Computed example of a mutant assay.
Amino acid sequence: MQPQHSQGVQRAVVASYGSYEEAQRAVDRLSDKGFPVERVAIVARDLEFVEQVTGRRGFWQALGSGAGSGAVVGVLFGFVFGLLNVIAPLVSAVVVALYGLVFGAVVGGIVGALSHALSGGRRDFSSVGGMRAGSYDVMADAEVAGEARRLLGE
């Protein structure tokens, strides 16, 4: 089967690779040899979502991460609003940012702890998720695919 490009152009697989980096290097080689790479696409196949568990997430971790997030938001808002002071904007920005840090940390900690408590023990872990592909196909418009295969074979 020849997949279609978004504008109705037929595409053909030129080469398949086990990693995205290898597919990028192939497109780089085509570019270096003067091939019109705007007619090329890298297509990921056999996608799967992988969620790596990084640790337990208890009450104190929820409180701490909520406080940290709230503190960052509080500092940013405080600094911006402090700059709006006409008389001493820089001094005011620093002072209001410090108040924002404290207020944001308190509110963020409460929200984090409350949301953890209300979850009822579901999802008591932290994780990082991402997509992973089984292979990567370098595809080119059908009328130039043969030339791309020839250049990659050199």
Rank of each mutant, 00 (worst) to 15 (best):
A88Y: 14
W60Y: 08
V102I: 12
L114F: 15
G58C: 05
V40S: 10
F103L: 08
L30G: 10
V107R: 00
R122P: 00
L83Y: 11
S31C: 11
I110G: 10
S127Y: 13
G100L: 07
K33G: 06
L76I: 11
A23S: 03
Y99A: 03
F77T: 09
D124G: 09
V107S: 03
F81S: 03
D124P: 00
G58H: 03
G121C: 13
S126T: 09
G58A: 08
Q24T: 10
G68T: 15
V53A: 08
R123W: 06
L84W: 15
V37S: 02
Y99F: 15
V96L: 11
R132T: 05
V50L: 09
L84R: 12
V102R: 04
G109A: 10
E21W: 00
V53T: 05
R57N: 08
R39A: 10
G55Y: 09
Q24F: 08
S135G: 12
G18L: 04
L101T: 09
V80H: 10
A93W: 12
P89Q: 03
P36Q: 13
G82M: 06
A113P: 02
L98E: 00
L30S: 05
L118C: 13
V75L: 13
I87P: 11
A117P: 00
L63P: 01
G70P: 02
K33N: 07
T54K: 03
Q52S: 07
G109H: 02
G66E: 01
L63D: 02
S127P: 00
V128T: 14
A93V: 10
S65F: 01
S126V: 09
L101A: 13
G109L: 04
G58D: 09
F125P: 01
I42G: 01
L76R: 12
A88I: 07
A44N: 03
G66F: 00
G129Y: 04
H116N: 13
Q24V: 10
D28E: 14
V50C: 07
F77Y: 15
A62P: 01
A117E: 07
V50T: 11
A88C: 05
A41W: 15
E22S: 10
D32M: 07
G70I: 04
N85G: 07
L47E: 00
R132H: 08
A62L: 06
A105S: 02
A88Q: 12
K33V: 11
G130P: 04
N85K: 06
V80T: 15
G121A: 11
D32T: 08
E48R: 14
R56D: 08
F103G: 00
E22W: 01
Q52D: 12
V128W: 11
L114G: 14
